Amino acid sequence: MDSDRVSALIGQRVRQYRLNQDLTQEDLATLANVSLNAVKSAEGGKSTLPTYVAILQALGHIDNLLAAFPDEGVSP
């Protein structure tokens, strides 16, 4: 899967998380302490990692992001 497709899927999931919580984009922007344009960009799959972190924290889904980077411990 190419990076554009992955970005689009992440944006779709952020949008679905927001809608499942019955939040407007404006509500989410306020909760995440980001701009409305930042939320719109994130849902469009065009954002930065710090913005996704803020949004996922606000939505209570930060564990989903952290699951992509499991702690493998120290390799000998």
Results as ranks from 00 to 15, higher is better:
Q57G: 04
I62M: 10
S75T: 15
D63R: 11
R15I: 11
D22V: 15
G45K: 02
L36M: 15
I62E: 05
A68W: 12
T51R: 08
S75K: 15
V53M: 03
I55K: 00
R18L: 07
T48F: 11
S41Y: 13
A38F: 04
A29Y: 03
Y52R: 02
Q16V: 02
V74S: 15
K46A: 11
P76K: 13
L28Y: 05
M1D: 05
F69C: 13
R15P: 01
P76D: 11
L28P: 01
D63I: 09
R13L: 12
E26P: 11
T48P: 10
D2R: 04
A29G: 12
L9P: 04
L36I: 14
V39K: 02
N37F: 13
T30S: 12
L49N: 10
A38K: 02
R15D: 06
R15F: 08
R18M: 06
L36E: 14
P76Y: 11
T30C: 12
V53Q: 02
S3Y: 05
S47G: 07
M1F: 09
L28D: 03
L59E: 03
D27E: 05
S35L: 10
E43I: 14
D27T: 00
V34K: 05
V14S: 00
S7D: 14
L19T: 14
Y17H: 08
T51W: 00
Q21G: 08
A8Q: 01
A8D: 00
A42Q: 05
P50C: 08
V34F: 12
V6C: 10
V53Y: 01
V34Y: 06
M1P: 03
K46H: 10
D2V: 01
D4P: 02
L36C: 11
